[in-house]
């Protein structure tokens, strides 16, 4: 077989295996519970016929392996079951909440990167000075900071004390109605609908959760940027450039260019795991996104919803890694051409 084809098949095989592991993890979650899982799937008190239907659907009277196969087939068909709380299909409920979460994450990653790259670069150039130590101290503190505590501190100061931030009541002021859905982002949709009051409200609601998440992202990323820059600054070509007396801007460009793959990899890893932190922040701000949905499902033992949430979060991480792999490949092709 030709090499590229074989490489592709190998990747496909690995991808399938990873997907199987994820589905198995999600399947085992319901096998693990202390109470019989059919009860949990149907809520604490399922009606008799509902219960019979669940036993039939999931094959709960059959061996675990058969149950797993059936579960896998259902997942492949996109049937993630119904939430016993609302009675609606889990997939639909999750899909409806994805734009809210994506909006939050996107702005946070952007803002976090904007904070982390200049700070990390400055710290690397100021290696082992007071400035560097301050940046590192703040980053380590940021990494130790529970996201919900940061959110609460910001709310205490800017909502309760200074009264310049809106209440943590979701994505838009409770007296306004959400704009017609186009992109799913309330802010962008309000602008499209030329509703300046709604746009302003949506933007105001975004500020604190985005700042919270951006600081969380920024803390880890700053240390990463600093480390990657330092590695570059030890490289012979950089030492030579510095000895030539190049300007700080030129030196930054040279080192940053070499550090980019490391920073990109770190950003991808972080984004893939960001849903966990986002969920906590959504919970505090009543954001109504996927993360909050998942946490509430866990607190209520709404198992179809928990399973769906776990699958979707894994899918999100996989997409992040794929995007990263793709970007890296394109970058490599460009390097080869250059």
């Amino acid at each position: 077989m030709e090499r590229p084809v074989r490489a592709l098949l190998r990747r496909l095989g690995v991808g399938l295996f990873l997907a199987l592991v994820v589905v198995l993890t999600s399947f085992l979650l319901v096998k693990l519970d202390a109470a019989p899982s059919d009860v949990l799937l149907g809520g604490p008190t399922p009606a008799a016929e509902e219960r019979a239907q669940l036993v039939e659907d999931y094959g709960l009277d059959r061996p675990a392996f058969v149950q797993f196969v059936r579960y896998t087939i259902r997942v492949l068909r996109g049937e993630l079951g119904r939430s016993w709380l609302t009675g609606d299909p889990v997939l639909g409920e999750i899909m409806a909440r994805i734009p809210a979460t994506l909006e939050l994450m996107l702005y946070s990653i952007l803002l976090g990167t904007l904070i982390a790259v200049p700070t990390g670069v400055a710290a690397a150039f100021a290696r082992n000075t007071a400035e560097d130590r301050t940046v590192r101290g703040a980053s380590v503190l940021g990494e130790a900071m529970p996201p919900f505590l940061l959110a609460l501190l910001l709310l205490l100061v800017f909502f309760r004390w200074l009264d310049i931030a809106p209440a943590p009541s979701g994505r838009i002021s409770i007296v306004l109605s959400p704009p017609t859905a186009v992109t799913g982002s309330y802010f962008i949709d309000s602008i499209i609908m030329q509703d300046s009051i709604a746009a302003r409200s949506a933007l105001a609601q975004l500020v604190l959760p985005v700042v919270t998440l951006a600081l969380m992202v920024g803390a880890t990323l700053t240390l990463l940027v600093r480390g990657a820059m330092l590695a570059q600054m030890d490289a012979p070509h950089f030492v030579y450039a510095r000895a030539q007396g190049m300007s700080r801007e030129m030196l930054t460009m040279i080192a940053l260019r070499g550090a980019l793959p490391t920073i990109g990899a770190g950003l991808a890893t972080q984004s893939a795991a960001l849903l966990g932190v986002t969920a906590l922040v959504e919970h505090v701000f009543a954001w109504g996104g996927v993360g909050q949905y998942g946490l509430e499902a866990m607190a209520r033992a709404d198992f179809a919803a928990v399973q769906g949430f776990i699958l979707v979060s894994a899918a999100f991480a996989a997409i992040m890694h794929l995007v990263h792999a793709l970007v890296r490949r394109i970058a490599r092709i460009r390097i080869r051409r250059a």
Binding site: F17, V22, A272, L275, A317
Partner: peptide, 10 residues
């Protein structure tokens, strides 16, 4: 690697 796809906190 597969298990790691789900954010560990979640």
């Amino acid at each position: 690697q597969g298990i790691g796809l789900v954010p560990p906190l979640l």
